[in-house]
Design a protein around this nucleic acid. Structure first.
Length: 863
RNA sequence: GCGGGCGUGGCGGAAUUGGUAGACGCGCCAGAUUUAGGUUCUGGUGGCGAAAGCUUUGGGGGUUCGAGUCCCUCCGCCCGCACCA
């Protein structure tokens, strides 16, 4: 027998093993994907990174999850597409240019080179041949082409509107990019400005974008709920009130939107937004209104301020006629709580049944007339309470509506208004068109030319791409394209006279709205996407990324996919068939004596258990778990972890313990645990290689048990991978490893069983720790590479156990556990249960009223 | 306020349609190996109890032979949206 002791103590060395297998995979083009209609495809995609310079733990988690799926599906026989690229436009490059005097182009490409090397050290099964960066003209020229096609189709257009202006980043932001009144990137309080901007007509598909959410069965409910809310569909009535008396101020009347037409008889005023055109017109001759409008503009829009803000308004002096009550008029107010962006920017107020109208009426002494008697309240004795009542009930004080339910009354009012021709039933959406103009240099140029004679002229296709000029400076704030001395000067393509290029660039979310489609044919020169490859690879079967894109990127991509279809690119509505949103990677935070944030590596735990600074020895206070971020200094560098422990350890730790959709706490102990397991597997594999055994002879009972454990593990592990239960899958491999370790082979046949178990274990673990698996596969003498091995199949005959343990309860309390043959006769099970001394003691001579026998599970004796 | 989700040991977390609560890992305790640290191995580890046993899934109630799981109710936490008419 060989003496393996010294060999066994030899450590697994990832620094040597991992680059070796990465090189082998690369040399053999293992992960190159080719469209092949004869094979089932599987498209795995993780949200592509912004090239900030370094990868962070969030990337490691994201790409580990995706890589497990990609490698697993590959072993299951799918033709897998698993590409990677770079979301490379964006403001940080311009900030770097300003601060470090390096051109955004240089900065970005240097970052890409660095991050690519880091990603490659993770051993991801990526098809790098399809790589592209969105800042490359070979990508954005196609985006410009798509833009022009969308313009032609009426899906991209230019108009003047109120926009969100970020005073720090000096650019406009889309509604989706304003979070609680602040810019999503800069955090600056957003201002309102009136500018002429380019928009995508996302509202074209409001209804479809909402309805199709139902069909996205493999999307998290949370994300669908957020998009539903964002799209914000409501059904109501658009109704025009005519002015009473002099109608010159608004000859066409004032149109309001309401979802409660049933409460029309309870209306006591009309209110228009301070941004309403009528309010602006009236302000010209009414200083009070002008002052109020100015005041409204300056008041904040943050949640907190709105909470405190009082409902306020000024009278316009106008009155309108009630459509159903002859001779009844309502005053018209300008009010601070009416939004111009929603509905028509005007409402009728029914104080009894809307809390805001109620507050407003209280303040200004307006009538509050209840018109809905809540269920269970006598219609004859309805009183005005301290709050508005908003529920269902029976209509009162409402003429022809009296006695109807809310739903019936809504219908009746709509019918009558439509018959009179003063309004119509309307479906209203909260969703606004997507403003895509950005006053920044480092983005995709919008390919149009402004000509004083011809207007807006698209850049002719043969002139694409409109490239960014390289000779730009960033000393002045604002748009470097605008500051460029000559770039914008161009001859009009139509009349040839001097004209001016559009200097706005596209929102970087445009770049990421179709990159997944480009991956299907990233080398296509003449077209954004080649139809055959688009049809074969799309949709993405499994998309993986952070929840922070629940609305932004995921909604824009759904719009873009429809827009591409409308422009003749593919026949697809929904880009992502399955979506998985991972949790964040968190870490403890630490602060030094002067409250400054400390890096985890600066902190040590002393012998007395207290935390101290590693160098200065000053006391350190431990803060809460927070998302890893530079502002908290609680980041851990993936490069350092991979350098010390190897990529497989980092990957294994990412998959262990925490379910992938939840936050994961990064801890040193956890990483060490993962590292120990890598070493343990390594020893097990070496021991097996040293004593492979011979199959054929009759195996021991313990050997059979091990085989059964093995096949059950294959079955359960596979199921866990299918369900994204990676933490449970990891636990099953621990259990299998424990079982193999505990197993003491009695003879050559047993050793062969162990060798078989280890061989299967290596194939199961390969998607998670691919380098170790590859090295082990080679040592075990497996043919070819482990990445090319088919997925192990569980033998149904070996999955079932011969014996089962059955708990025996007496009136619900466990008193004994029986070990019996599987599927034993219930009568025999009952008899065995009633023969247990512990059971008899618990029965204590009382009459047995009933015995419940659940086959192979439990017996409950009721006394 | 509206919408989504959650509450299980010291910690992360397991528990098919209701059927042995606490798998697996981390941490901790004890022992062995090692010159020592580290590594590795063995055993233990929800709580109370010497033990038999009792008790335990945020609190309370219910349905059931049987509830972490279903129903009612209360409490607490997280996430998203929000003057959306």
């Amino acid at each position: 027998m060989p003496e393996p002791k010294t060999d066994l103590n030899e450590r697994y060395n990832p620094a040597e093993v991992e680059p070796k297998w990465q090189a082998t995979w690369r040399e053999r083009n293992c992960f190159r994907a080719e469209a092949d209609p004869s094979r089932p495809k599987y498209y795995v995609l993780e949200m592509f990174p912004y090239p900030s310079g370094r990868i962070h733990m969030g990337h490691v988690r994201n790409y580990t999850l995706g890589d497990v799926v990609a490698r697993y599906k590959r072993a299951r026989g799918f033709n897998v597409l698993h590409p990677m690229g770079w979301d490379a436009f964006g403001l940080p490059a311009e900030n770097a240019a300003r601060d470090k005097k390096v051109h955004p182009h240089e900065w970005t490409w240097a970052n890409i080179r660095n991050m690519k090397a880091e990603l490659q050290s993770m051993g991801l099964s990526l098809d790098w041949d399809r790589e592209f960066a969105t800042c490359d003209p070979s990508y954005y020229r196609h985006q410009q082409k798509l833009f022009l096609q969308m313009m032609k189709a009426g899906l991209a257009y230019r108009r003047e509107s109120w926009v969100n202006w970020d005073p720090v980043d000096h650019t406009v932001l889309a509604n989706e990019q304003v979070i609680d009144g602040r810019g999503w990137r800069s955090g600056a309080v957003v201002e309102k400005r009136q500018l002429t901007q380019w928009f995508f007509r996302i509202t074209e598909w409001s209804e479809q974008l909402l309805a199709a959410l139902d069909g996205l069965e493999r999307w998290p409910d949370r994300v669908k709920a957020m998009q539903t809310q964002w799209i914000g569909r409501s059904e109501g009535l658009r109704l025009t009130f005519d002015l009473a008396g002099d109608t010159t101020a608004a000859p066409d009347g004032i149109t309001v939107y309401t979802t409660r037409p049933d409460t029309l008889f309870g209306a006591s005023f009309l209110a228009i937004s301070a941004e309403h055109p009528l309010a602006h017109a009236l302000a010209k001759n009414n200083p009070e209104i002008a002052a109020f409008i100015e005041e409204c503009r300056q008041s904040g829009t943050s949640e907190e301020e709105l909470e405190r803000a009082e409902k306020r308004g000024v009278l316009t002096g106008l009155t309108v006629r009630h459509p159903f009550i002859d001779g009844h008029t309502l005053p018209v107010w300008v009010a601070n709580f009416v939004l111009m962006e929603y509905g028509t920017g005007a409402i009728f107020g029914c104080p009894a049944h809307d809390q805001r109208d109620f507050d407003f009426a209280k303040k200004y002494g307006l009538p509050i007339l209840p018109v809905v008697a809540p269920a269970g309240v006598d219609p004859a004795s309805v009183t005005v309470g301290p709050e508005a009542t908003v529920g269902d009930g029976v209509l009162i004080n409402s003429g022809f509506l009296d006695g109807m339910s809310v739903a019936e009354a809504k219908r009746a009012v709509i019918d009558r208004v439509e018959a009179a021709g003063t309004g119509e039933a309307t479906i209203n959406f909260r969703l606004r068109d997507w403003g895509l103009s950005r006053q920044r240099y480092w983005g995709c140029p919008i390919p149009v030319i402004h000509c004083t004679a011809c207007g807006i002229v698209p850049v002719p296709e043969q002139d694409l791409p409109v490239k960014l000029p390289m000779d730009v400076t960033f000393e002045k704030p604002g748009n470097a394209l605008d500051h460029h001395p000559t770039w914008k000067d161009v001859a009009c393509p139509e009349c040839g006279k001097p004209a001016r290029r559009e200097t706005d660039t596209m929102d970087t979310f445009v770049d990421s709205s179709w990159y997944f489609a480009r991956f299907a044919s990233s080398d296509a020169d003449d077209t954004p996407v080649r139809p055959a490859e688009f049809d074969y690879w799309l949709p993405v079967d499994q998309y993986i990324g952070g929840i922070e894109h629940a609305i932004l990127h995921l909604l824009y991509s759904r719009f873009f996919t429809r827009a591409m279809k409308a422009c003749g690119h593919g026949d697809l509505d929904e880009p992502f068939d399955g979506l998985f949103t991972q949790g964040m990677v968190t870490h403890r935070t630490y602060r030094g004596a002067d409250r400054r944030w400390l890096y985890p590596v600066e902190v040590v735990r002393g012998e007395d258990g207290t935390l101290r600074h590693a160098e200065t020895g000053e006391p350190v206070t431990e803060g809460p778990l927070e998302k890893m971020s530079k502002s908290r200094n609680n980041t851990v560098d993936p490069g350092a972890i991979i350098g010390t422990y190897g990529a497989d350890t980092a990957r294994w730790f990412m998959l262990s313990d925490s379910p992938p959709e939840r936050d994961l706490e990064w801890s040193d102990e956890g990483v060490k645990g993962a590292w120990r397991f890598m070493q343990r597997l390594w020893r097990l594999i070496r021991a097996t290689v040293a004593e492979p055994g011979h199959a054929g002879a009759a195996r021991s009972e313990a050997g059979t048990t091990l085989l059964q454990t093995l096949h059950r593990t294959v079955q359960d592990f596979t199921q866990d991978l299918d369900r994204f239960h990676f933490n449970k899958a990891v636990a099953r491999l621990y259990e299998l490893t424990n079982a193999i370790d505990r197993f003491e082979p009695a003879d050559e046949a047993d050793r062969a069983v162990r060798a078989e178990a280890v061989s299967v274990l290596v194939r199961l673990i390969a998607p998670m720790t691919p380098h170790l698996a590859e090295e082990a596969w080679a040592m075990l003498g497996g043919a070819g590479l482990v990445v090319d091995q088919p997925w192990p199949e569980a033998d149904p005959a070996l999955v079932v156990q011969d014996t089962v343990s059955i708990a025996v309860q007496v009136t619900g309390k466990k008193r004994a556990v029986l070990t019996l043959p599987r599927d034993a006769d219930p009568k025999d099970v009952e008899a065995a249960a009633l023969a247990e001394p512990n059971v008899l003691r618990a029965i204590d001579g009382k009459p047995v009223r009933k015995v419940v026998v659940v086959p192979n599970r439990i017996v409950n004796v009721v006394v």
